[in-house]
Nucleic acid binder design. Structure first.
Lengths: 139, 139
DNA sequence: ATGACTGCAAAGACTTTGCATCTTT
DNA sequence: AAAGATGCAAAGTCTTTGCAGTCAT
């Protein structure tokens, strides 16, 4: 039997928060952001709903940046840029490798390719400017 | 003053182990693999040397797969495939996106791009065959 | 002898989970 | 009332780190 899904005010708020930002938030970021308006929110609930939204295909993971998993409500294919210094994640909508790349790789290597991720790493413009300052970028 | 680097039997063994496998090992994998021949090896030493090798440019991180960071001794640009089921990581030497992609992105977005990663996700051939069995792939 | 490297264990950071309670239907 | 969703806190996993002892130079 299929498990029923019920409405929840917090679930709705969490999803809205992800969809309303372009910062590719982490669980902790969402928790801090929602806490003021949902004082009894728990971090566990954020994690549980992130897992839920992924299973539903409403969000996807962008990967782990500086120890924290980051999420994206834009589920259409696009590339990302990750700043090695401040950890910010940006969308790069124009840099999808062309064509049926997944299919080609599947065929050539005998794999079942479902998707791919193209991610650029470096310094964002803000960190580039301050580069001669204190902080060394994490490798 | 530049910090001196000294020889260490264990460091040598750890690097050799990474270079001698194509499995893109994790710290734990290396530890388990080296333990028999280095019974007093400590996991902390593995982690410290992985950080050291990265700083030296002798290895690079392939990213976090199923909660564990994975490393690669092949530091020339190439793509990877990650199995969502068993977590294995494969090299795909033939699928580097063409040309000066990093430079183009740098220029177009005003970022300092250092490198990029192209990673495919799906099921490896082994897991594809057993797909109708017990285990569901982790999303 | 100096200082780099290590083992060990504790601590840290992030995430998951068990259980009682609250909510939705 | 039934069962999903949550809060809370404990536990789990992976990684980092402090310190005393060891080893390379």
């Amino acid at each position: 039997m299929e498990r029923a899904v019920r409405y929840s005010r917090k679930r709705e708020a969490i999803l809205a928060e992800i969809q309303g930002t372009s910062c590719h938030p982490s669980a902790e970021w969402l928790y801090q952001r929602l806490k003021p308006r949902h004082p009894d929110l728990s971090l566990g609930t954020v994690y549980r709903n992130l897992t839920f939204f992924q299973a539903q295909g409403q969000i996807k993971s962008v990967g782990v940046v500086q120890g924290q998993e980051r999420f994206d409500a834009v589920v259409t294919p696009h590339s990302h840029f990750v700043c090695n210094c401040c950890g910010s994640v940006l969308d790069l909508p124009d840099f999808q490798p062309g064509g049926d790349l997944d299919r080609t790789v599947s065929w050539q290597y005998g794999l079942t390719v479902e998707r791919h991720e193209l991610t650029f790493y470096g310094l964002c413009s803000s960190c580039s400017k301050q580069q001669n300052n204190k902080e060394e970028p994490k490798l």
